[in-house]
Design a protein around this nucleic acid. Structure first.
Lengths: 385, 385
DNA sequence: TTGTGGACTTGAAACGTTTGAATAGTGTAT
DNA sequence: ATACACTATTCAAACGTTTCAAGTCCACAA
């Protein structure tokens, strides 16, 4: 039985090891932290110290160590909502970037709550993260905490949203290019009467994506029927897009049928659309094609697999990390700043939810189209091809 | 312009605030930490201190504070893989339990890698978490680090796996009941020729789930054709079940057709099965019903929605947290221990992937069944109903 | 004996907090 | 005047580390 001194915390400390070895704390520290001095120590002593530390289950106190070293090797990661499948690959990308640099991620989940966003950021600051990566998709208010981040000279980077207006380096997908990519895919399959479900207003991505969609349509001389352009309402939680897509798809089928494809704001919306179309008796892709955006897991594993525009989420995370680490490398720790966002190229992923439009003869959708709304006549535009 | 002393770290400290206020560090600390003594201080002073702290963007150093207070208010959460949709709700449940208690979660993602599991646990220990919750689904080796956890008197709890053999409190779903629930659902719909896809051997859940399935089948006097009982191979990553389900479903259709339902090990497997059946020209649920297990997001948003056995993931997380917090409340910090696992009741969630078996007259599946393998004759069993 | 130098080990200060004990300042009753 | 009781503020030590400067030994050369 060990004689057990009344202890404050249950943790084994350096001095516990030192006592057990009959050596000073300094010596033990030198050995266990592999300081250069340890080479000057008798090999036998080193051995004894290591053995004892292992036997007692010693683990250095990161808090004391960081205090002394003035370095925490920690990067705060503030995700807006970990239950959004969007966040997961980004976080993974960040962690994989951090690992080889021996940095450690302090992951906070804001759960789409403003209050939590603030307290998480405060936490990150208090825990002395050397840098912060924010994964933000919804438009968060001018958090005055961001000012505190700057006052404390903590470099910050944002993923998924453009905040270069505040000179914060931003990594995001090129939404406009993505919107165009999606539209062009449908056009190239031969679709002309295309419904669009735009994102909610409070989401940064909505506008540029829609712009890309319009641009591509205009360029091809395809008219977008206003009755077939609806918007999701502001989201309350990450998967509300599903219900939105389901609802809006059904509405469109009854109010303005005859479209042969739906371009949805994101994958969850697209999945909702598929469900809605099914309820209305339409098959995907035979009667109506569907395309999403993001390429999250559910899009890949549902049947039919959802054709979508992939955001390089993993890459966004790892690039942001790269950038942050570079800044941390520099001794001066100057605040990062950037004038233009880093826009990553989206990528079309063709799965089974998109196909050429039904031939008029045998499709329910196409016959409806003929009945209510003739295919718009292509117009040539001044744009280059 | 502030005169700026050459500073080691960019962080604003108590003494910065003290200097700016012309007060001592103690005074400032007393006020900013809302110590009882602060009531004895002049209101004006308090005011001045708060204002200055805010102006400078002061945030207390959690490291120094924890060091001094010997309390980190931190619980380590070690998830086996955050890209598995299984983990996300559990973590959410944990965080929601921790929040009101003013505890803070230190989330580590082991990414299904043994090496990372170890280093994450070490990290958690070094960061002086007061307790640990491990979300483990695959069988991890006798991590000797777990011994260190005990040596340091850190209570530990496991979610998703029974480790009471090592006296570690365990929260998990009652897999056997779940397996039976799934089978009974299919039976009650009228299915008699049912295929089963068992989980991989290295997954703890596989065995009890299968046992429940068998039990329910026996009780109903339904024979399970060995050709229709296949196992997933050991998983390399969380979504490998999808490919497995896809593959095995196709194999079964060609090698032993005629079944009217597939009971899949988990939701991703079920989603794979749906895809596989589709490829073989079978419709779900018209030609073949499919049931999964877990109730993860993709199961809910795919079309048809996957009928599944819901694990109360959120609840598992919050119950584990409750239990841990109770232990932390007690001053003695005795190691937790438990002799029997807490098994939570699973819940049947009926969606659109399950339906009564096709009537023989018009179904492809049924005609195949008749051709190759007649429906097994029900046998009565000695079991009670 | 007295250095001298090497090999090995330790003392002490500092990191940013908190907190019980101590100090200065100010009336007020003796 | 002195003691007393406030009020408002500060001192100093400690938490567990790391690291530089400074020990202590001891063998061996002078």
């Amino acid at each position: 039985m060990l004689k057990r001194v009344k202890r404050k915390s249950g943790h084994v400390t350096l001095s516990d090891v030192a006592r057990a070895c009959q050596l000073s704390v300094s010596t033990v520290s030198i050995v266990l932290s592999h300081a250069p001095l340890s080479l000057r120590l008798a090999a036998a002593t080193r051995e004894r110290i290591h053995a004892t530390a292992m036997r007692l289950g010693y683990h250095p106190d990161a808090y004391a160590r960081s205090l002394r070293n003035r370095s925490t090797k920690t990067v705060g990661v503030l995700a807006y909502d970990m239950s959004d499948p969007f966040c997961v690959p980004v976080v993974r990308g960040i962690e994989e970037g951090l690992l080889p640099a021996n940095y450690f991620s302090l992951l906070m989940d804001a759960q789409t709550e403003r209050r939590l966003f603030d307290s998480s950021l405060r936490m990150i600051l208090e825990r002395r993260a050397e840098g912060v990566i924010v994964i933000a998709s919804w438009v968060f208010e001018e958090a005055n905490l961001l000012a505190d981040v700057e006052k404390n000279h903590v470099p910050i980077i944002i993923v998924g949203r453009d905040l270069t207006e505040r000179r914060i380096p931003s990594f995001l997908v090129d939404n406009q290019a993505g919107g165009a990519l999606a539209m062009n895919h449908l056009l190239s399959l031969g679709h002309r009467r295309i419904a669009v479900i735009r994102g909610p207003e409070d989401l940064f991505d909505s506008e540029p994506r829609w712009k890309g969609v319009q641009l591509a349509a205009n360029r091809a001389g395809v008219h977008l029927d206003p009755r077939l352009v609806l918007s999701l309402s502001n989201r309350v939680d990450p998967i509300s897009g599903f219900d939105g897509g389901l609802q809006l798809a059904r509405e469109m089928v009854s109010s303005a049928p005859g479209f042969t494809a739906i371009l949805a704001f994101d994958d969850l919306t697209a999945l909702g659309v598929v469900r809605g179309l099914k309820k209305e008796g339409l098959r995907v892709p035979e009667d109506c094609s569907v395309i999403g955006f993001d390429d999250i897991l559910p899009a890949a594993v549902s049947t039919p697999g959802i054709t979508t525009i992939r955001q390089p989420l993993h890459k966004m995370g790892s690039l942001a990390t790269q950038r942050l680490l570079e800044a941390l490398q520099k001794a001066d720790r100057a605040n990062l700043s950037a004038a233009t966002p880093d826009m990553l190229a989206p990528e079309l992923v063709v799965r089974d939810s998109s196909a050429p439009p039904p031939t008029k003869a045998r499709s329910r959708s196409a016959s409806a189209a003929l009945r209510h709304a003739p295919v718009s006549t292509p117009r040539s535009t001044p744009n280059k091809p």
